[in-house]
Amino acid sequence: MTQTRALRTKRKKSRNDLSGYFYIAPFFIVFGVFGAFPIVYTAWIALHDWNPIGTQTWVGLDNFTFLVSDPRFWNAVRNTFSIWFISTVPQLLFALILAAALNNALLKWATGYRMSILVPQVTSVLAVGIIFTQIFGREFGLANYLLESFGMERLDWQSGVLSSHVAISTMVMWRWTGYNALIYLAAMQSIPRDLYEVADIDGANTFRKFFHITIPQIRPAIIFTVIISTIGGMQVFAEPLIFGGNSNFTGGSDRQFQTLTMLLYEQGFGRFKFGYASAIAWALFVIILIVSIVNYMITRRISRE
């Protein structure tokens, strides 16, 4: 009697365990099909000279050795990091300031402002790209008009390395600042009020409160945005592509704003070197991994202080 009851509860327990796996299965199936499998399969392709139509020959690590010696790859790495840095650092600082301002209890129409900072986010990246490309146009662009009215020389934004990076970063910043600000704001809203009250009693001013209460308290949100912006920044594609004109995957005549994803696309779908493109994809994966870890360590140290 007791034995069967024990058996029954055990069976029931194991059935419960099993149903738990069923609940989480959809995610893992989808991730396996669209996440894990392509990653592994890409590694397999990268070891081949892989023509989508025609032959696939095993070449071992040749694609990777060529990658390391390919100046176009290092150029794309430089461009990607440069655009990422120029866009992310000001973007996150600005988002932090924006969030602090929107978190102010005295602010009127707070919800209206909070909603409106999301507007750039819902705009199609294509529309953003086209408009900004016109703003930074050589002949009739608004940016050059402003430069001239301040007595400065007009720029051929596309042909310069730094100028093209600044122009592309502006698009990225415009789209993502509000999104990051919203995340910071959500985190700031959950900071307990009493911390500030205690600080008020101790006579701390606004800046002290901001740096010693707000920043440490929203540390997880900062880490989250830094990592998300890094992953996004490493993969920036649409903005430089549109900036260079239709179907121009070289990113300018000197590849001056060709990012890693553009090089990947050029080699894969423009030159049909799927093996080499897969090697680039893996290099990108490793780069994102390393940068994310470094990011995480730096951010953690900064916000702990």
């Binding site: 909070r114 999301l118 986010q121 819902v122 705009t123 199609s124 990246v125 294509l126 790209g129 086209i130 999104y179 919203l182 995340i183 959500a186 594609f237 649409a238 592509l241 549109i242 004109g245 239709n246 179907s247």
Partner: peptide
């Protein structure tokens, strides 16, 4: 609101790719 904004971000990401495939508009 945050979750909604993420969904929007994901959707616009998909739109991005669709647009990119066509090589932009003219």
């Amino acid at each position: 609101l945050l979750v909604l904004s993420m969904i929007v971000a994901a959707c616009s990401g998909a739109a991005e790719e669709a647009g990119g495939d066509n090589g932009g508009t003219s």
